[in-house]
């Protein structure tokens, strides 16, 4: 961390930028707390609409009265949690192997996996959809969670990380006669914890916010994720129940990730020792 004081102008510019940065979100929150009748006339009632006066909780009440919302939260939690766990497990193992084990075929498999980074979701979408349909596996939580596990970003990150760990650590263990499993479990994993934290958060965020796949795969309300469920409530933008409710649905869909972010922001913002540089 840098200790020197910032020049004043930098301080002012960055602070001002931060205020501007927050405006859209504050505005959304404020609109969600104002009555719909007011919003149909003006969105700038009190101080450009940034202050929710007059204040109402009706929009949130309306959405929460839809009985399925808690279930959708739960589904999202389960789906995002499962894929995060599986991504962590598979990509730390694979990352370690790609970075530190010289095995036949590595020079072919690793580039192949990396190339997978560049496959757009929409490309594999149809074959994937048809495949799960053939297995009769749509409308289930595993189907919602699994495709994300195949994405190579975690493997890429972990490989980068393990590559940068000095050889000396491993050599000492080797001399003791430790195998790869032992080295991985006792030496590498503890070292990788901060990195895994980052990866977990990224995976959870992206999985939570996933839209296209759950939209098409989950056709029954019981298997909705919150993003899809609330997007359905948003319905047609043009014929929606009102701006306030629309904004409230946006706030609600974001709430769990916001809470998660506030809880773990230390890990997200400071603790990560993403060692992409020596």
């Amino acid at each position: 961390m840098n200790q020197r004081a910032l020049p004043r102008w930098v301080f002012i510019v960055v602070t001002a930028a931060a205020v501007v940065w927050l405006i859209p979100v504050v505005w959304m929150l404020s609109l969600s707390l104002q009555p719909n009748e007011l919003l149909s006339r003006t969105t700038a009632n009190t101080f450009l609409g940034l202050v929710p006066v007059p204040f109402t909780l009706d929009n949130f009440r309306a959405i929460l009265s839809i009985g399925d919302t808690p279930r959708w939260f739960m589904n999202s939690m389960l789906v995002a949690g499962t894929s995060t766990f599986l991504v962590l497990a598979t990509s730390t193992l694979a990352g370690y192997a790609f970075a530190r084990i010289r095995f036949t075929g590595r020079s072919i498999v690793y580039p192949l996996v990396l190339a997978g980074l560049m496959v757009p979701e929409q490309v594999v979408f149809i074959p994937l959809y048809v495949m799960f349909a053939d297995w009769n596996a749509h409308n289930s939580l595993p189907t919602l969670a699994l495709p994300r596990v195949a994405l190579p970003i975690g493997v890429f990150l972990m490989t980068q990380f393990f590559k940068d760990i000095p050889d000396s650590l491993e050599e000492a263990a080797r001399l003791e006669g430790c195998g790869h499993a032992r080295i991985f479990w006792s030496i590498m994993l503890p070292l990788a914890t901060p990195m895994m934290m980052t990866l977990a958060i990224i995976t959870f965020l992206y999985s939570w916010n996933d839209y296209l796949w759950p939209l098409v795969s989950a056709q029954r309300t019981d298997f909705f994720t919150i993003t899809v469920g609330l997007a359905k409530i948003q319905g047609n933008f043009a014929q929606s129940q009102g701006l306030g409710q629309l904004m409230a649905s946006g706030v609600l869909a974001s709430l769990p990730v916001i809470i998660l972010f506030l809880m773990f922001q230390k890990y997200i913002l400071r603790g990560i020792a993403l060692s992409t540089d020596k």
Partner: peptide, 22 residues
């Protein structure tokens, strides 16, 4: 059982369902 579909993607979803024999 009314299946959830959203307006903008209705026909895309419908096609996917047909293509998946569901």
């Amino acid at each position: 059982e009314t299946l959830p579909t959203d307006w903008g993607n209705y026909y895309d979803q419908l096609k996917a369902m047909y293509a998946g024999n569901s």
